[in-house]
Simulated assay, not measured.
Amino acid sequence: MSNNALVIGASGGIGAALAERLARDYAVTRLSRSADGLDVTDPASIERVLGAVEGPFAVVFVASGILAPPGHAPEKALDAIDAEAMARTMAVNAIGPALVLKALVGKLAPGARIGVLTARVGSIGDNGMGGWYSYRASKAAANQITHGAAIELGRKDKQSVVVALHPGTVETSFTEGYKAKKLSPEDAADKLVGVLMGLDPAQSGGFFDYAAKPIEW
């Protein structure tokens, strides 16, 4: 069985903590934009960086993402929507994970487990407040991409687990200024690894929070 793990977005607060947590049990490959020049929105960059790693990987976390592009913030109202900012958010948060999953085909160990970090605000059914149009839409799209990938990969490997994961509100640069109760990156990473490793293949394609509770779509 493979002892290799991969973390995409390993320079971020959650990604770095996930890599450290996985390093207790796996040989971890850490990839990020700042350290490796990995641009998840650029197919050529993904082919260059991910094409250079061999695997096979038993565990993968896709922890890349943005709340909004530099100079922008999540929208509070429709009149705050900016087309270019929305397109960039969708590119990083939805198209990026899709391209990463595409590049991972052929690099996964039998029974591989993949966790794509999305967010509870990507749930349509749980949206009772509105706002945050770009971020919500991008995470909802990432959820759909993850669900579809789980179906496809499950046809080839019935023991694989591919899920969307909500890490909770984590103490990182993304959440500065937010008053919600926050998890430390280390605590969030420990919980997320526990959830991913504890899921049954029958639960592949689902959407779960850091306490392993299902989230409605």
Rank of each mutant, 00 (worst) to 15 (best):
A23R: 08
I81T: 02
P97L: 08
G106S: 09
A19Q: 12
P56S: 08
A77S: 15
E47V: 02
T89H: 10
E54I: 06
E47N: 05
G55R: 09
I66G: 03
L78V: 14
V28W: 07
L78Q: 00
G71P: 05
D79I: 07
R33Q: 13
I81Y: 04
N93Y: 07
R48I: 02
T89P: 13
A94D: 05
D36A: 14
V60H: 09
L108F: 10
V105F: 01
L78A: 13
R21G: 09
G106E: 07
K102R: 14
D79P: 04
L31W: 01
A19K: 11
A23S: 15
A77H: 04
V28S: 11
L18A: 14
A68S: 11
A68F: 01
T41I: 03
R30G: 11
L99A: 01
D79E: 13
M90H: 09
D42N: 12
F61R: 11
V92P: 10
P43F: 04
L101Y: 09
L78M: 11
A80N: 04
T41L: 01
G106F: 08
A27W: 02
Y26A: 12
V49G: 10
A19S: 15
V28C: 13
A77M: 02
M90T: 08
A85D: 02
E84F: 00
N93M: 09
A77G: 11
K76C: 02
A44E: 12
A23L: 10
A52C: 07
A103H: 09
A58M: 08
I81K: 01
L22D: 12
E20C: 08
H72P: 05
A35K: 13
A73G: 02
G96P: 10
A68G: 11
V40I: 14
A27Y: 06
D82A: 07
M86K: 00
M90F: 14
D25S: 14
P74W: 00
P74C: 04
G37L: 01
I46F: 06
A80M: 07
G55D: 13
A91E: 11
L99E: 05
R21N: 15
D79S: 12
S64F: 06
A85C: 04
S45N: 00
K107R: 15
P56L: 07
S32D: 05
G96R: 02
S64G: 14
S45Q: 01
K76S: 07
A58D: 13
A77D: 10
G106V: 08
G55A: 15
L101I: 08
I81P: 08
S32R: 03
Y26H: 15
A17E: 08
A23C: 11
K102Q: 15
V40G: 10
G71A: 03
M90L: 15
